[in-house]
Structure formats: C-alpha cells, structure tokens
Design a protein around this nucleic acid. Structure first.
Length: 261
DNA sequence: ATGTCCTCTCTTAGAGGA
C-alpha cells in the first residue's frame, strides 16, 4: 500500500493541485498539513468524489491536519498531542487504519529563534517524543508522518551555512529529531537513500525550485513492527513545479502487505 | 534585508505567518 504526506499550504487555495496529484499518484492513505481552513471549510465533497474518506482537524487561518483513506476504514484515536491542554493549535491527528496506527503531524516552525515561537516548538517536540515513546511501547505498526519542520543533517539542505540561525536547522531541534529517531524509529527516506540529497520543500523566494535550493522537512518515521515492510519511498518533486503549487512536495512510501492485512 | 504566497480583516491593502 502507498502512504503519502503532503504539506498542502492551504487546502482550498490549492485544491486543484491536491485533486490532480491524488488522481495521478493514487495513494491509499494521505496525511495533509497546513489546511489553513476552519473545520467547516474542509473540501470533503471534492475529495470524497475521488473515493477518499477523511478525518480532519481544522483551525482558522493556520495549521490544520487531515488524514485521507481510500478503501480502508479509519478509526479516530486522538486529535491532539497529549501533554498540554492549553495548546489549541491543530497540529496532530492519529487514526487506526488497516491495522496500523498513523499519526499525522505538523510540528511548529519555530522562527524567529530565539523567542516564544522557538520555545513552543521545543516544548511541542518534547511532547512528541514522550508520545512517540509511548507508541513504541505498544509494539504495534506505527507510522508518524508529516512536516517536522526540521532539517535533520547537512545532507538535507542545499546550503547549510545559510540556515544555521534558522529554527529549522538549529542544533537544538536537530538534536531533538535525532533523539526522537533514536528511540527506535526508522526514517524511511534516509533508510532507503542513506547518501542522497533528497528535498521535500523549496522556498517560494528566489526561484528556489528552479535552482533546486531545497530542504528535507517532511519525514516518515516507522516503528520496528512495520519498518521491515518498507519497499520503496520517494518525493513527487514535479508537483512543486505545478501552477499554484504548495512550497512542499508530496512524499510517499510503499509498504508490503502485512501478515494479516 | 530581501524575496513569494497563503489567509483573514477594522477588506480591495495590509498584517501575520511560513
């Protein structure tokens, strides 16, 4: 089965792009981030016409996450990251689908750093690590997919030196990501392509896409109970070149069927 | 500093966020 994650950067503003990509890529399950739409304005009918059911968590103006599924019924597990009742951002959604637990996440950007936003990012990261550790303790197939807003290593950025003071690449979030993965997760893209420069985001500024001045921000983390089924992964980078495209490109993985699936 | 593009509003221009 094919599972994808895509920071859509405005699900209504980019709906033609999303529908075109869904028809072309034919994913079974999709994690979306940055809906930028209130709950009532999620385009459930247009997406439904392509055969997808959806669960989503909207918010006015910012953030917002959704999970789409075609042919595999979804069961909502949670629509908040545990650990802070006062955090009202819509940045996390977790479902059970096809005997897997899928978490869709949109980690805070954190800029400018230092500052309140950076502090919020790091707190959110700590909560994610705590929850991820709990999920690993369940010893079940888990996929944590989304926009982590972290450039993990120098291999994941076209020009490391120009990002050293940015919250996407500062030592603290990079350490947090490394420590998260170190709990026992497999970074799917990096696992299959240990040496390659692979980007998932190209800034709108300064013709970044045309220059391939990209970043790898969108990641799939797989628990040990599912990582052995990983057979392929990639980035649909051409989608970034479409008219009215998001600044991110869709990222996908292929999984072999599970024993009882 | 700048660049671009989304959403929302004290709306058709500017602010805030990324």
């Amino acid at each position: 089965m094919k599972i994808a994650t895509y920071n859509i950067n405005g699900v209504n503003g980019r709906l033609p792009v999303l529908l075109r990509w869904l028809e072309e890529a034919q994913p079974d399950i999709v994690c979306l981030q940055e809906l930028k739409a209130i709950q009532e304005r999620f385009p459930v009918n247009e997406i439904g016409q392509l055969g997808y059911e959806a669960l989503w968590n909207g918010q006015k103006s910012w953030n917002g996450v959704a999970i789409l599924s075609r042919g595999f019924p979804m069961q909502l597990v949670r629509d908040r990251l545990p650990g802070d009742r006062n955090d009202l951002h819509s940045r996390y959604l977790e479902v059970i689908v096809n005997q897997m637990l899928v978490g869709c996440l949109y980690l805070p950007n954190g800029n400018p750093a230092p500052g309140e936003k950076f502090d919020y990012k790091m707190k959110w990261f700590q909560r994610l690590k705590a929850h991820a550790k709990y999920l690993l303790s369940e010893q079940v197939p888990v996929i944590l997919a989304g926009d982590y807003n972290v450039i993990p290593t120098e291999l994941d950025v076209y020009k490391p030196e120009s990002w050293v003071t940015n919250a996407l690449f500062m030592p603290e979030p990079r350490r947090a990501y490394k420590s998260l993965v170190g709990q026992g997760w497999t970074d799917a893209i990096r696992h299959l392509y240990p040496e390659e420069r692979i980007y998932t985001f190209w800034d709108y500024f300064r013709k970044a896409y045309e220059r391939n001045a990209g970043l790898r921000l969108d990641h799939f983390l797989l628990s040990p109970q599912i990582s052995g089924r990983l057979s392929a992964a990639g980035v649909d980078r051409h989608v970034r070149g479409w008219e009215k495209a998001s600044d991110h490109a869709p990222v996908w993985i292929l999984l072999e069927d599970g024993e009882s699936a």
